[in-house]
Computed example of a mutant assay.
Amino acid sequence: MNYRKLGKSGYDVSEIGIGCWQLGGDFGPVDDNRANQILRAADDNQINFWDTADVYGAGLSEQRIGNYTRSNPEPRFIATKVGRDGQLFPNGYTKAKVKANLAGSVKRLGVEALDLAQLHCVPTDVLKAGDLLAWMEDFQQEGLIKHFGVSVETMDEALFAVKHPKLTSIQTIFNLFRQDQATELFPAAQENNVGIIVRLPLASGVLSGKMTKSQTFAETDHRNYNKDGAAFSVGETFSGIPFTTAVDLADELKTMAPKDMTLVQLAMRWILDHPAVSTVITGASKPEQVKENVAVSALPPLSSELHEALKQFYFNKVKQHVRGVM
């Protein structure tokens, strides 16, 4: 495993992280035993960056992480999020309520202070008002959180937040189906020493290259109920691309991968080839997937010719299909 600095935290995080949304059961049922197996696989493969949120399974993801880490005390950097709980989102934000939610995360995770608390895709006008960021500074000074960042849905939000002098990180969607951050956000992040946390590197799994147009998903899976943006931003599911179109595009990308590389490896290695990226958070529904994801860290960089071909593929064939504000 290779490690990279996470912005102003100065902390060395694994360039492949583990996303823990699935531990809340939001992609289908996951029992305690399976959750522990996934977390153990993360430890066994030197993944020290774990990402969760207070709303994943209404706190279940955090609780499972807390239960596991109490029994398996090892150095880790655990990031969580605040701001999408129904008591706050979309217009119920107060300093007291945000602090109470963060305190709830502290309790569930079993820590004295949160390593990283990220504002969780809060409305643009709320973010730009500045109160939430000022409160996060206060919570940092009080010792409730060690570092804070933002998880954003749009480029506009990211470019606003990146200028904040105390901001440690920005979590953003970045993958072969969403490439604009490379030129619009990443230079500003490097200039301001802000770490980039990449989420949805496989565009909700469609960039695995294993899905078909007849694919079905569990009723509780956001790839079922939010495929057209019925529950939250359409850009969060399949990177905003209509599912059947995304499958076709993924199939075409498979033909561009080197002969000794799967589409998953191509998609992940492409992200890691961007030096502004601190870590890529990947979900896993079983331990074997964790090991497969980690293996990408050891792969050599892609050629400049392939990078250029993938860039042209995005701008000529993909970008026109992305729904939602990027």
Results as ranks from 00 to 15, higher is better:
Asp221Ile: 02
Val206Tyr: 01
Lys259Asn: 06
Pro201Met: 05
Ala246Asn: 06
Thr245Lys: 14
Gly240Trp: 00
Gln265Asn: 15
Met261Thr: 13
Pro187Val: 00
Pro242Trp: 04
Asp180Ser: 14
Thr216Tyr: 08
Gln181Asn: 14
Pro201Cys: 07
Val264Thr: 14
Lys210Cys: 09
Ser239Pro: 06
Asp228Val: 14
Asp248Cys: 03
Glu219Asn: 10
Val234Trp: 10
Ala188Phe: 13
Thr220Gly: 06
Lys254Ala: 11
Ala267Trp: 01
Ala246Trp: 10
Arg223Phe: 05
Arg223Tyr: 04
Ala182Asp: 11
Gln265Ala: 14
Asp260Leu: 00
Asp180Glu: 15
Ser208His: 08
His274Val: 02
Thr212Met: 13
Gln181Cys: 11
Ala267Pro: 05
Leu249Tyr: 00
Phe186Val: 02
Gly229Tyr: 11
Thr220Val: 11
Thr262Arg: 01
His222Arg: 07
Ala257Pro: 02
Gly205Asn: 08
Ser233Glu: 12
Arg223Asp: 06
Ile197Lys: 04
Glu219Leu: 12
Asp273His: 06
Ile196Arg: 10
Lys210His: 13
Phe232Val: 12
Thr216Arg: 15
Glu219Trp: 04
Gly195Thr: 13
Thr216Cys: 09
Ile197Gln: 03
Leu207Gln: 03
Asp251Tyr: 04
Phe243Ser: 09
Glu219Ile: 13
Asn226Thr: 10
Phe186Arg: 03
Pro258Val: 01
Leu272Phe: 06
Gln215Ser: 15
Thr244Ser: 12
Met268Gly: 01
Ile241Met: 09
Pro242Phe: 06
Leu249Ala: 06
Met268Ser: 10
Ala230Ile: 04
Ile196Trp: 10
Lys213Pro: 05
Met261Asn: 07
Phe217Trp: 11
Ala246Ile: 13
Arg178Cys: 14
Lys227Ile: 06
Ala182Trp: 11
Ala182Ile: 15
Pro242Thr: 09
Thr220Arg: 13
Leu272Asn: 09
Lys210Val: 04
Asp251Lys: 13
Glu252Thr: 14
